[in-house]
Nucleic acid binder design. Structure first.
Length: 517
RNA sequence: GAUCCCGUAGCUCAGCUGGCAGAGCAUCUGACUCUUAAUCAGAGGGUCGUAGGUUCGAACCCUACCGGGAUCACCA
């Protein structure tokens, strides 16, 4: 596919051609890196590495660095430029007389551009104006950049021409990462968060496992799936919406603790809080109940906050959130009573519907009591829960995989942690009575036949596993992206997913429409 | 899916009541061996998201569509 080049692209392509004519490979093979920019800035010591204030430069701080040229200030026979590597930026000082004959004037000045990746050898020094820099003695082209980068400038912490266009940043994340260094930091923190959680669970002896992404039946959550087809077996397959039912089969199999950090897929809308593929961490621990699991959640989230921020308190948007244990625990119905003044416990479905109607919540005949409770919670409670709070004991009809409450009729032993007005995790004492589980599945099937596209499917194999006997088990699911949003103070899930789903871009790949095989 | 806002040079943005398409950075030419939003002198660069419509005349007004953002509803 050919396309017309802009003026600046043509200039860069010509420069690449002239590099090749001059015998300079525009795409080098490797470069021995001795330091990153940050290492040099931290290790530089004025006492040991004197500047050029009249005295001859001391050359003992030799460095070899590589990175992308982000600025150029050319002054006749000498130039300054900033090189950016993963750790940050450092200024380099390039002079005609320190490079091979003709290299400075022809190659450096005429054939290189902002955005090119170069390797540089030289020694560190401090300029007259005080900036630690590298005096270049050898320079190699490692990759010629053929497209102009957005030029972002900065002075005294003030940023000029910052690239803020969300679409540009999400579609060309590679550019976003180059020109907005704080974006790299967000994804480093995300990685550290996951590493911390994994270590936390490994330390307790839980086994990280992998279960099928392609599933003949989908289950474990209320959501619409993506559907695909396996050609050789000629069968319909679903991309998983959750890992739950497979992980609990492993508890039946004798693992006492299993977890999986997985991509799940839900064929639903996109929003600031939703991406069709997202990352979930699910954990199941035998011989424990939901009460124990609340303690576990407090601990692991607190550990993440401390690892990332050195503190249990952090600023998220306008709120200061404290993850310090213990978190508040409120039964769902009490939370609703607190906000609305209405006690729903022991009320019939119709009594609840009347209360909801009084509170200006739309209720139709298809809504059961569980759904009404859920609506009231969503409307009057959820957004007001800023500090991490466990909401406990949900209606049984909303929780087909959770165990009945040991003392409260009509409820299950389930909790959600709510933080900054959003659900952070969902957990319960797992239902291990196979006959009760079958009955719950059958209710779901009825809902599905009634048109509920998010109803669960009846999974005979899962029931067979339960019939062999599953120990009492506590289960947990944490939305990793949601937690990453909190931990990195990001307003949108797209800011914590490297390549969020967007509509296809027109004009970049014309083959998209034709390739309908 | 509904509502509102946005789309102008590679990037960030102006563009008044409808009257010749603008600036800074970047790019190109020249000068400059301690600059740092480098500076100085000059130059080039546009399908104003797309398609219609109104008008003597549209970046600007109207309609539809495309893309993005925000809010709402469902879900994590």
């Amino acid at each position: 596919m050919s396309r017309e080049f802009t003026e600046q692209e043509s200039v860069r392509r010509e420069a690449r051609a002239r590099l090749e004519e001059a015998g300079v490979n525009p795409y080098g093979y490797s470069w021995e890196v001795s330091h990153h920019a940050k290492d040099i800035l931290e290790a530089f010591d004025d006492a040991k590495h004197q500047g050029v204030d009249g005295s001859a430069p001391l050359e003992e701080f030799k460095v070899s660095i590589a990175g992308r040229m982000m600025s150029r200030r050319i002054m006749g026979k000498a130039s300054f430029s900033h090189l950016q590597d993963e750790s940050g930026r450092i200024q380099i000082y390039v002079t005609r007389d320190d490079l091979p004959e003709g290299f400075y004037n022809s190659v450096f000045k005429k054939m290189l551009d902002i955005g090119d990746v170069i390797g540089v050898e030289g020694y560190a020094f401090r300029t007259r104006t005080g900036e630690i820099s590298v005096h270049v003695q050898k320079l190699e082209v490692l990759s010629k950049s053929l497209r102009p980068f957005p030029i972002v400038k900065e002075q005294d912490g003030q940023v000029f021409n910052e690239v803020t266009d969300k679409e540009f940043r999400y579609r060309q994340r590679y550019v976003d990462l180059v020109v907005n260094p704080e974006v790299r930091e967000v994804f480093r923190q995300r990685a550290r968060m996951i590493t911390t959680m994994r270590r936390f669970m490994d330390d307790r002896g839980y086994v990280e496992v992998e279960t099928p992404v392609l599933q003949p039946l989908y289950g474990g959550a209320a959501a619409r799936p993506f559907t695909t087809h396996h050609n050789a077996l000629d069968m319909k397959l679903y991309l998983r919406i959750a890992d739950e039912l497979y992980l609990k089969r492993l508890i039946v199999g004798g693992f006492d603790g299993v977890y999986e950090i997985s991509k799940d897929f839900r064929n639903e809308g996109l929003s600031r809080f939703h991406n069709p593929e997202f990352t979930m961490m699910e954990l199941y621990v035998a011989y424990k109940d939901y009460d124990w699991m609340m303690g576990f959640v407090e601990e692991i989230v607190e550990a993440v906050a401390i690892e990332l921020h050195g503190s249990t308190e952090l600023q998220v948007g306008e709120n200061t959130i404290s993850f310090k244990r213990p978190w508040k625990r409120i039964p769902l119905l009490e939370a609703i009573e607190e906000k609305t003044g209405h006690d729903l416990s022991g009320k019939s479905r119709d009594e609840m519907a009347a209360i909801a109607a009084k509170l200006n919540i739309e209720v139709d005949d298809s809504m059961g009591s569980g759904k009404i409770i859920d609506e009231l919670f969503g409307e009057f409670v959820e957004a007001s829960l800023i500090q991490p709070t466990f909401i406990t004991d949900y209606p049984v009809e909303l929780s087909p995989l959770a165990k009945r409450h040991r003392s409260k009729e009509g409820l299950v032993e389930r909790f959600e942690a709510i933080c900054n007005g959003k659900e952070l995790c969902n957990a319960f004492s797992e239902l291990n009575d196979p006959d009760d589980q079958r009955a719950r599945f059958e209710e779901q099937v009825v809902l599905g036949l009634g048109g509920d596209e998010e109803a669960m499917q009846l999974d005979e194999d899962y029931l067979r596993a339960l019939e062999y006997g599953m120990p009492p088990t506590a289960g947990l699911g944490i939305g990793i992206d949601r937690l990453a949003m909190l931990m990195t103070n990001s307003a949108s899930i797209r800011d914590v997913i490297l390549f969020p789903l967007l509509r296809p871009e027109t004009g970049v790949d014309d083959s998209v429409e034709e390739s309908d095989d």
